[in-house]
């Protein structure tokens, strides 16, 4: 017993001495942390790119260039343009198609274009918001999972203590330290996930507002065009 009291408490030995359940919890938390960090980087890249492309397109659009030329470029760059470009492309395509129908008047064409834009907008938003819920889940659940591992490890540590006549802190301390690693890992998984979730939802919301206001303004432009023709 006295030999186990004076031992080295390195991180690896603590993990390897932990009980199976605690090790499973640690493994699960490591996987969750890995996946959430992967998503953090992936969504970070995607959202930054979307913001940059939106800015670029807005600049071009409001610099007074021809709508037809913009449409040509958007449809030729199929898919590689930004989200806002795709919203514009869908709306303008629908508007042009409907305008060719002789029976329909310009308000119908404009309503059709608005519906097409809203559909594209929703698809884009879904794309941008996808997987963010996973970050929220990791952020809220992994502390509890880590806590579970800790509680389990401490239970084991105290159960081992019942066999010892002379209960000293040195007998429980390594077990508790092992168990607390699970909490630390849970927090390590949760904190970045929560921060990233908050940040990304905020960014996506701002993008959504920009898209919506663009859609309204573009509808106005289409209405003016429809009336002019």
């Amino acid at each position: 017993m006295s030999a186990s009291v004076t031992q080295d408490l390195s991180f690896i030995s603590m993990v390897s001495h932990a009980s199976v359940i605690v090790q499973l919890v640690m493994l699960g938390l490591l996987a969750a942390s890995m996946f959430s960090w992967w998503l953090i980087f992936l969504k970070g890249f995607a959202i930054r790119k979307a913001v940059r492309q939106t800015q670029q397109f807005e600049q071009e659009f409001w610099s007074g260039s021809d709508l037809n030329a913009l449409y040509q470029r958007a449809s030729s760059a199929h898919g590689n343009g930004g989200a806002m470009e795709r919203v514009f492309e869908a709306g303008f395509r629908e508007f042009l198609k409907l305008k060719r129908q002789p029976k329909l008047d310009s308000t119908d064409a404009m309503h059709g274009a608005q519906r097409a834009m809203r559909a594209t907008y929703q698809r884009e938003m879904d794309q941008l918001e996808g997987h963010l819920s996973f970050l929220a889940t990791v952020g809220s659940v992994s502390p509890y999972v880590g806590l579970f591992g800790t509680v389990w490890g401490i239970m084991n540590a105290f159960r081992g203590l019942s066999n010892v006549v002379q209960a000293t802190l040195a007998h429980v301390a390594p077990g508790i330290a092992e168990a607390l690693i699970a909490t630390a890992m849970g927090l390590f998984a949760a904190i970045p996930a929560v921060v990233a979730y908050n940040r990304y939802t905020h960014d996506v919301d701002r993008l959504a507002i920009r898209f919506e206001s663009f859609m309204e303004e573009f509808s106005n432009i289409l209405q003016r065009q429809g009336a002019a023709v």
């Binding site: 980087f41 890249f45 995607a46």
Partner: peptide, 23 residues
């Protein structure tokens, strides 16, 4: 549809970075 391809781009870089963070 389009977005799927867009996310594909940074996939490996993101994975690499995530691994780096854990290491």
């Amino acid at each position: 549809m389009y977005g799927a391809r867009e996310q594909e781009e940074g996939k490996w870089l993101a994975l690499l970075l995530a691994v780096a963070v854990h290491i």
